[in-house]
Amino acid sequence: MNLQATSDLSRPWLTGIREAIPLLGGYIPVAISFGLVTVQAGFSTWEAALISTLIYAGASQFLFVGMVTGGAPLWLVVVMTLLINVRHVVYAPNLAPWLTHHRCWPWLMHGLTDQVFALAHSRLPQLAERQRLGWFTGAALLAWGSWIAGTTLGAVAGEWLTSRWPLLGEIMPFALPSLFLVLVVPRFTSRQWSLALCTTIVTAMLCTLAGVTNLGIPLAAILGALCFYAVQFDTRNRRQE
């Protein structure tokens, strides 16, 4: 799982699967919770699995089920869940320079979650062009499959699992912050990036503590970008003086 450039990957899809394994620690416990919450809200097991298969977006799925159960109008449910996912619009263009001309790529974007994007954004530039489609397919399919499997497991046996191993659901999700940390740390390359990254992390944490997580993600990223540009502007001004 070395992050260094690798050009001798004979089976890139297998490498993609292997490198996406750390995602499972975060995906499966959350998917189990979603399956459990969904059947408790009155949906059947296969309906819960189908929601995870089709929508495949963690936070918005919880919101979808919560709002439907609360009796909200369905148009509002759709609008709110889509609003949460708006951040996804910046993901694919960031990967585009490294994608080949294969016609499958637009369809594979169904698997472009926060985590898969973070992983792909780090790894695709290091892979040879011919390996990228296989790598992304392997990584995205493992993540998608684990999300669907976790939801089904949660719907069928979520209550039993959480009572049998209560700590597991508490400990395994730490795989996500841990993975994000590994993906973000190499970006601390200059004062400008460090300031932007720290601003983003602190803002996102404060927004989460204030209970506005979904608004917090784009807000924190925009504030971080403003810091990035402020330093750039300041540096240019000093050079001109």
């Binding site: 926060d114 985590q115 912050p177 994000f180 932007a196 996102a204 944490m205 924190a220 990223a221 971080g224």
Partner: peptide, 27 residues
């Protein structure tokens, strides 16, 4: 690579960083 507007190439990594910030807050 240059075809991407600069703001977009900055916003992408910062979105990941924001998700890191969110995930660092304990349940």
């Amino acid at each position: 690579i240059d075809a991407m507007p600069q703001w977009l190439s900055i916003l992408g990594p910062l979105m990941i960083t924001a998700v890191l910030g969110v995930s660092l807050v304990p349940s």
